[in-house]
Design a protein around this nucleic acid. Sequence first.
DNA 1: AAGTGGACCTGCTAGC
DNA 2: TGCTAGCAGGTCCACT
Length: 271
Amino acid sequence: MPELPEVEVTRRSFAQRIAGARVTGVRLGKPLRWPIGCAPDALLGLVAGETTRRGKYLWLPLGPGGLLLHLGMSGSLAFAQDVAAPGPHDHFDLVTTRGTLRLTDPRRFGAVVWSPALDQAPAARLLANLGYEPFDARFTGAYLHARLRGRSVAIKQALLAGDIVVGAGNIYACEALLLAGIDPRTVAGKLSKPRCERLAASVRQVLNEALQAGGTTLRDFKDSHGVAGSFQLQAQVYGRAGEACRRCAATIKRIVQGQRSTYFCPRCQTR
DNA sequence: AAGTGGACCTGCTAGC
DNA sequence: TGCTAGCAGGTCCACT
């Protein structure tokens, strides 16, 4: 589910409310991607700080350390005073004086990991290879061009890898490439500097528009208040195989790259 | 070093 | 109606 816009929308929906809350209980469900790495009771009494985001990870400061959260493919966070009895997909509850933060994640690719600090293991290791934030001023066409030099993978896969720029997952990588007019199969290292400029701008624009729309809700994404996103209504190519391109009316194609679906317009996007 | 493929896990849908 | 194959928003790791 969650690419940068969904994670950021989620963060904004509870960061202020949870800051200053004291932990009064912890409940673990089925195992997530990694073990939490601390005794649940060790969190009792700790006070939360303001949640920040790096890539698709959230960092919730708690006492002397914090929890690194990831939503995986199907995760979402709720934060409310009154929570229902945990369902079969509710795998983490952080009960606090201001409400309960609950991770619901059917596929359990998500994670909640204790770390003594953001720049220490295990958090530091998980964040070590992340590229620039898309809204970082350093994420420019020149930077993109330099980082892509010599890489023979398709540009779509280079974007998804996250070591150059974070945040664009399968939906937004497809949408950004459409906006930039670049064929997703183009060899990354062969993109001209002007096209890199255009792509960097497109990544920012698409993520920004998705943020404004509250993210994309394909099936079950909701922010911590339970509000769905609407960007799926503005998607130009993602999930639209066989349908007409909204710009040129050519038929949108679906291909597979790196075992992921890629959607693109064969007329608007060139190599 | 960079690229590829498998792994993790569950639920939903389309098709027979 | 019921079973099965295929697909889904991510990313780590082992291997070439």
